[in-house]
């Protein structure tokens, strides 16, 4: 192997070239040492820390898979689920005529921040209250809150929360009415429902705010909606 080929082989994999092959090439020996040291440093950097419980979560997801598929077979919430599905179908037609709608945006937002659904740390009322205060709302949730931060919702600075309702993640967007045309039309009062293959959602208007809920099980929307009626007090 000529010198150029050896140099190339060293850059491709420094370990692939034997000491004998470099016996009369002190410069290439030096290069091999440098590249091996570089590889060692790279290996250390590449081996980033793996989140704890990642393996267990993966196994749990797989074990829960059949249950998730059969949510509609659970005995209790037939009436709620059926009613919501009918309403979704009823509202689907006008929504489909719009290039982008609130439901689609809410679902995209949830997919964009899927990690929020799995947030494990629970936030205290002291964490949450100041955020709601900025929107003129007093909040007193009877359920744990997994995630809360201000987000961009169709250009409107909104509050994005993930509530823990009966052990399941329910996303809540609190979107102030800016009076500007957008996904949420000013003064829009009608409730709206939406869904895709995985999530169900609904939105309602409360004074100057639109509340958008997204959950994997439709019955959670009704449960959470009823809970919000009691736990959110709107000052504006």
């Amino acid at each position: 192997m000529d010198k150029l080929s050896l140099r190339r082989a060293l850059y491709e994999d420094p370990r692939s070239v034997s000491a004998e092959a470099l016996q009369d090439e002190p410069q290439l020996q030096q290069l091999q040492q440098e590249l091996q040291a570089l590889d060692d440093s790279l290996r250390q950097q590449l081996a980033i820390e793996v989140p704890p419980q990642l393996v267990e979560r993966a196994l749990l997801n797989q074990r829960m898979l059949p249950m998730q598929k059969r949510w509609y077979q659970r005995p209790l919430p037939y009436a709620t689920a059926a009613a919501l599905l009918v309403t979704v179908l009823y509202w689907q037609q006008p929504l489909q005529n719009r290039p982008a709608d609130l439901g689609q945006h809410a679902l995209s937002h949830v997919y964009h921040e899927m990690a929020a659904l799995r947030a494990e740390a629970l936030l205290s009322p002291a964490d949450i209250s100041p955020m709601f205060s900025q929107l003129g709302i007093h909040a007193d949730f009877p359920v744990p809150v997994r995630y809360a931060r201000f987000c961009d919702f169709d250009g409107v600075r909104s509050l994005h929360l993930v509530l823990d309702v009966d052990g399941e993640a329910v996303t809540l967007f609190v979107v102030p009415d800016t009076g500007q045309p957008g996904l949420i039309e000013p003064g829009q009062l009608k409730p709206a429902q939406f869904a895709d293959a995985r999530f169900f959602g609904q939105s309602v208007t409360k004074l100057q705010h639109r509340l958008v809920l997204v959950a994997e099980q439709p019955q959670l929307l009704a449960t959470t909606s009823a809970m919000l009626e009691k736990s959110l007090h709107f000052n504006i």
């Binding site: 900025q134 995630y147 931060r149």
Partner: peptide
């Protein structure tokens, strides 16, 4: 391949982001 989702960070004021 999923629909491009327009999103931008918003100011978090002085509140410390809990996550």
């Amino acid at each position: 391949e999923r629909k491009q989702f327009e999103y931008s960070d918003v100011e978090q004021d002085s509140l410390e982001d809990p996550h």
